[in-house]
């Protein structure tokens, strides 16, 4: 036990969060600021959700100094991970949390969309519930606006509540420039080159649905744009390179303006 204690005083526990986010399977998490964790207001209500709440919090904030046997220690460790997850869901919808997650999103830390027509668009983690132990983490593709299961089992076991239902929508509200261009490309099943009637009929119906929605939106003064429409308007800018450059600049600029908006 004494050995254990001396260890806890060393740098091992002083970086509990570092250790947590760098351990395998936790790639989706970002690091929560110390300030955020120590502000009790941000933790409102969590003491009833987490067992050994105080110890767990101490462990997460690196001030844990309890003589505990292995069993208890393990329980507290588990609680700490749970607590960290729940705080994480709250943290990532704050300005700072969003900025950190945007970085991870741009790096593609959350994987790529498995849908072929999305061309490997980066994903965002999300949950279908805000209450713990209801469903596992899902991945949201902003391009096709659908949700997918993580392909790796080590990610599939993460609780969805650690990311929450609102995070990804909030991110695109705050950074509207990050909203990817939507595409109307789709897969057309064919047999010996001929379209299949059932699928084609559905596709026509869906296209009609889209056009109706577009018309409704236009009536409301909102223009719903798809990649295929844009290409017609910008026929002059055919070169690929300058277009991508301007895109990136635009993204960076708008991200900054997004931050400004919050400040106001």
């Amino acid at each position: 036990m004494e050995d254990f204690n001396s260890e806890t005083d060393s740098d091992y526990t002083s970086y509990w969060r570092d250790w947590f986010i760098s351990s395998r399977g936790n790639e989706y998490f970002c690091e929560i600021d110390e300030d955020y964790l120590t502000d009790r207001f941000n933790l409102t209500g969590l003491n009833t959700e987490v067992a050994y709440y105080q110890y767990a919090l101490d462990l997460v904030t690196d001030v844990f100094d309890l003589d505990a046997d292995d069993d208890l220690r393990e329980q507290i460790e588990k609680s700490a991970r749970h607590l960290y997850g729940l705080v994480h869901a709250r943290y990532i919808v704050t300005t700072r949390g969003l900025a950190k997650m945007v970085e991870k999103y741009k790096r593609g830390d959350f994987g790529k969309c498995p849908r072929v027509m999305c061309d490997g668009h980066p994903l965002l983690p999300m949950g279908q519930h805000d209450v713990a132990n209801q469903s596992n983490v899902r991945l949201f593709c902003p391009k096709c606006e659908d949700i997918y299961n993580p392909k790796s089992s080590r990610h599939a076991s993460i609780d969805g509540a650690y990311f929450g239902t609102s995070f990804h929508s909030m991110l695109f509200q705050v950074y509207p420039s990050l909203v990817p261009e939507k595409s109307i490309r789709r897969y057309e099943p064919r047999i010996f080159g001929f379209k299949v009637h059932a699928s084609a009929a559905l596709a026509r119906w869906q296209d009609q649905f889209r056009e109706d929605q577009k018309a409704n939106l236009r009536e409301a003064g909102v223009e719903a744009k798809y990649a295929e429409d844009v290409s017609e308007d910008e026929e002059l800018e055919d070169d690929d390179e300058p277009v991508t450059e301007t895109k990136e600049e635009k993204v960076a600029g708008d991200a900054a303006s997004g931050r400004m908006d919050i400040g106001n």
Partner: peptide
């Protein structure tokens, strides 16, 4: 739907 980042891909599903 009227939000800039509102749903645009519902038709697909």
């Amino acid at each position: 739907e009227r939000s800039r980042s509102g749903p645009r891909m519902k038709w697909l599903r």
